[in-house]
């Protein structure tokens, strides 16, 4: 199985139905993408697949072979991603931080698709859970990144 992650091709000897999350974390050793629930409820595992926010815990690797997968480790190499990270730092979004990889990926995907989203569009796209309740800061950071 060939996966393209952060611009690099990898040959993986894994089952076709292995969730992308575990290929990224345990096989490729990239731990920035987080396991939270395993059932696409929380969004901590969000990565970009061809620029689209995707919950990797329920995405089998075979479904994304040949597509461009971006994880949080490469987010600052992306112009939009860099703006998002800067806004996250400016607004001081993170508390425990565990969900923030996924939040940054979701925000990046949103701004790639809609550079100037309305508050309603932000609410529709930013559905990942945060147990620390940083939701107001997340929305503020997305708005700030859209202005940058």
């Amino acid at each position: 199985m060939e996966l393209t992650v952060n611009g690099k091709k990898h040959q993986l000897d894994v089952e076709a139905d292995m969730p992308l999350l575990w290929a990224i974390r345990d096989v490729l050793g990239l731990t920035g993408t987080k396991y939270g629930c395993g059932v696409a409820q929380c969004g901590a595992c969000t990565v970009l697949v061809d620029g689209v926010a995707t919950r990797s815990c329920v995405t089998p690797v075979e479904a994304v072979a040949g597509q461009a997968i971006t994880t949080i480790e490469a987010i600052e190499a992306d112009a939009v991603g860099r703006k998002v990270v800067d806004a996250w730092v400016n607004v001081q979004v993170a508390q425990c931080g565990y969900c923030q990889s996924g939040q940054v990926m979701a925000a990046t995907a949103l701004l790639k698709q809609i550079p100037k989203p309305s508050d309603a569009q932000i609410a529709e796209a930013m559905t990942n859970l945060c147990r620390c309740g940083t939701y107001n800061a997340i929305a503020a950071a997305v708005r700030q990144a859209a202005q940058a």
Partner: peptide, 12 residues
């Protein structure tokens, strides 16, 4: 500013 925000925003 918190010391850990950039690392927590970049998966580090």
């Amino acid at each position: 500013q918190r010391l850990d925000v950039r690392d927590k925003s970049t998966g580090q």
